[in-house]
Amino acid sequence: MDPVRSSVKETPSEIKMKTSKKKRVLTKDHMLAIGFLTPSLILIAVFVYGFIGWTGYVSVSNWNSLVPDFSFAGFENYVYLFQDFRFQADLRNTLFFTIMFILAVIVVGILLAIMLDQKIRQESLFRNIFFFPMALSFVVTGVVWQWLLNPSTGVNLFLSKIGLDSKWYTDTTIIPGVEWGKIEFGIPVALIAVVIAAVWQMTGFSVAMYLAGLRGIPEEVREAARMDGASEFQVYWKVILPLLRPITVSVVIIMAHISLKIFDLIYAMTGPGANYVTDVPGVYMYETTFRGNYYANGAAIAIIMLLSVAIFIVPYLISSRKGES
């Protein structure tokens, strides 16, 4: 179940084709094929790799006003960011948002998938209910949940009746709030509201993945475990869950990259928040670049975001390529 690995298998005739190809140069059709691929390759080369390079170049320049200034600044912008209160808060928020978000998506995803896999009635109805938020925009989700979790309303009316009053995304508490650099380090309570909205929107993905995985495990595997005297719980904990590990890897990678670059949900729902309790690099990058005209700072944030995503994605892509050949 490796995500990007495809199932290109070579049939005998294809292998023959390849060996006969070696004797002569590429056929005319093969040249044509490469010719048709070339425009896309050029687009990717320029607009992905070239532009990343260009952003990297901007990030070490002095372009922090409306007028482009490409004089070399060294790592000044990066140094500035890592000493900046707002960026330090962003790093903390991204860390805890990512952890809470991924954990919730995985746990809820597995549980819902297992529940749906019990040959229940109306399965497709339940599936559709869990999946439909994925068809929505993060902006729509943000707008709706901003209203739902509005501190003076909604969910809170119920919660305050049982003595649980929460300020949701306006809460500035950090738990435990240890002094660290310029910020208080810990879990910002306000982020939990955003995590709830994000999980509501994205669990459909992990449910779909795990459900596909569960359906791919032959019934005999469960039967064999039951024959060995395993309880129903043990069957899942000791047999099924380990078999689902490759899916968990994929879910973690996909969710991590979504979480590390998240922008629209937070921008629409809470914005940076008081004391930047719900701010993330994506929001900071947008505001500092396009509102503040600090292009070099914005570029530096973007490069840091890219690196954080690349740490997950590059090994993942390389390993899935290797698995194929």
């Binding site: 922008f263 990058m285 973007a302 892509l317």
Partner: peptide, 25 residues
């Protein structure tokens, strides 16, 4: 063709990048 799988991987990378990293250019 020779190298097509590597090129494919290089193309795929483009779908994971944060678009902030190409936005200014």
């Amino acid at each position: 063709f020779k190298g097509s799988n590597a090129l494919f991987t290089a193309i795929l990378f483009g779908m994971f990048i944060p678009y902030q990293s190409i936005l200014i250019p």
